[in-house]
C-alpha cells in the first residue's frame, strides 16, 4: 500500500522537476513545479473531440493505457514491504501489462488512419520491441543473482557484497535509466519537445487525442516515470533501515532520477532516427554482459 501511495505522490511532481531542471540549465525562468499538473487539470475541463473515421478502439485506448500502468504500479514493492499484488514471476506480468497499454495505443494510432500517426506507431512498436530483451535479461540476471522470481523477493534478497555484484548493480542502474527513457519516449530516442511530425515518435501517436484522453495519457507517463524511479530506489534501499529513512531516501532517489533525466535531456543530442535501433540494442548487450556476470557470481559458469 505504501509503495502505491509513494508512487502516486512522486508522479505528481516528477515531470515538474524535469522541466524545472531543463529550464534552470537553459537559464530560463523556472516554471512552477505543478505546471504539468495544472496543464492536466485544464485538459480535464475540456471535452474530447473524436475524428469521424475512428472506432471504439480509439476511444478505449487511453483508458486501457492508463489503467494498465496503474495496475502495474500495484506490483512495485517498497523496501521490505510487499506491493499490493505479488506472485511468483510477477515481473513478467508487469512487463506485459505495460506492453498491453502500449499495444492499444499503437493500434489506436493506426485507427485514426493518419499517415503520420501510423509512422509514429511503427517506430514506437519497433523501439518497445527492441528494449524488451534488455528488460528481461536484466530481470533474469537479477533473478539468477538472488535466486528469486518475484519483485518483492528480488529486491529484498539483493545483497551487494563483492566487486562483481557492484558491477552488476552499476550496469543494471545504467540500463534501467535508459530503459525508462526509451519507454517514456524521452531524449536520446525521442524528443517530446519536437514539433516536426517526421521526427516525432510518441508525440505524433497521440496527435489526435484531446481533452480527457490526452490528460490520461499524460498521467500515465508520469506514473511510468515514477514506477521506474521506484524500481531504481528499490535497488538502493536496504530493508534494515527504519521506515522514515526509507521514505526519505526514496524521495531523494526519485528527485535525483528526475534531475538526471533533465540533465540528460539538456545535454544529450537526440540520436539520428536510423541510429536508434543500434543504440537500443546496446542496452541489451550491456544487460547480457551483466547476465554473464550474474552467471559467474551464481557459479552457474565455473571458471578457474
Amino acid at each position: 500500500m505504501i509503495s502505491l501511495l509513494l508512487i502516486l505522490l512522486s508522479s505528481l511532481f516528477f515531470v515538474g522537476i524535469i522541466i524545472q531542471t531543463k529550464a534552470k540549465i537553459a537559464a530560463r525562468k523556472m516554471p512552477s513545479i505543478f505546471q504539468p499538473l495544472s496543464d492536466v487539470i485544464r485538459l480535464f475541463k475540456k471535452g474530447a473531440i473524436y475524428s469521424s473515421t475512428t472506432s471504439i478502439i480509439f476511444r478505449a485506448a487511453p483508458i486501457v493505457y492508463f489503467s494498465s500502468v496503474l495496475i502495474a504500479a500495484l506490483f512495485i514493492p517498497f523496501g521490505g514491504n510487499v506491493g499490493l499484488l505479488s506472485f511468483y514471476g510477477d515481473f513478467v506480468f508487469f512487463a506485459y501489462l505495460l506492453a498491453i497499454g502500449k499495444f492499444l495505443m499503437i493500434i489506436a494510432a493506426m485507427d485514426t488512419g493518419s499517415g503520420f500517426e501510423g509512422m509514429g506507431a511503427n517506430r514506437e512498436a519497433l523501439y518497445s520491441m527492441l528494449v524488451e530483451p534488455a528488460f528481461f535479461i536484466l530481470a533474469g540476471s537479477i533473478a539468477l543473482f538472488t535466486n528469486n522470481v518475484s519483485f518483492q523477493e528480488l529486491f529484498s534478497n539483493l545483497h551487494i557484497v563483492s566487486s562483481l555484484s557492484y558491477s552488476i548493480s552499476v550496469a543494471s542502474i545504467y540500463v534501467l535509466i535508459y530503459i525508462a527513457l526509451v519507454e517514456n519516449s524521452r531524449m536520446p530516442v525521442d524528443d517530446p519537445k519536437t514539433h516536426l511530425e517526421l521526427t516525432m515518435v510518441h508525440e505524433v501517436m497521440v496527435l489526435d487525442n484531446s481533452g480527457f484522453d490526452l490528460a490520461l495519457i499524460h498521467i500515465a507517463t508520469w506514473l511510468k516515470f515514477a514506477i521506474y524511479g521506484s524500481i531504481l530506489a528499490n535497488f538502493l534501499i536496504k530493508n534494515t533501515w527504519s521506515i522514515y529513512e526509507q521514505i526519505g531516501v526514496y524521495f531523494v532517489i526519485q528527485i535525483a532520477f528526475a534531475i538526471i533525466v533533465g540533465i540528460l535531456e539538456s545535454f544529450k543530442a537526440r540520436n539520428k532516427m536510423s541510429k536508434n535501433p543500434q543504440w537500443i540494442i546496446m542496452l541489451s548487450a550491456i544487460a547480457v554482459v551483466s547476465f554473464l556476470t550474474a552467471l559467474i557470481v551464481a557459479h552457474k559458469i565455473i571458471l578457474n
Binding site: 562483481l164 558491477s167 554482459v289 556476470t293 559467474i296
Partner: peptide
Amino acid sequence: MNFLFIIIYAITLIY
C-alpha cells in the same frame, strides 16, 4: 577482482 576486468574488457568489445 579479475572478473571485474574481464567484464570491462567484454564491454570494450561491445563498444
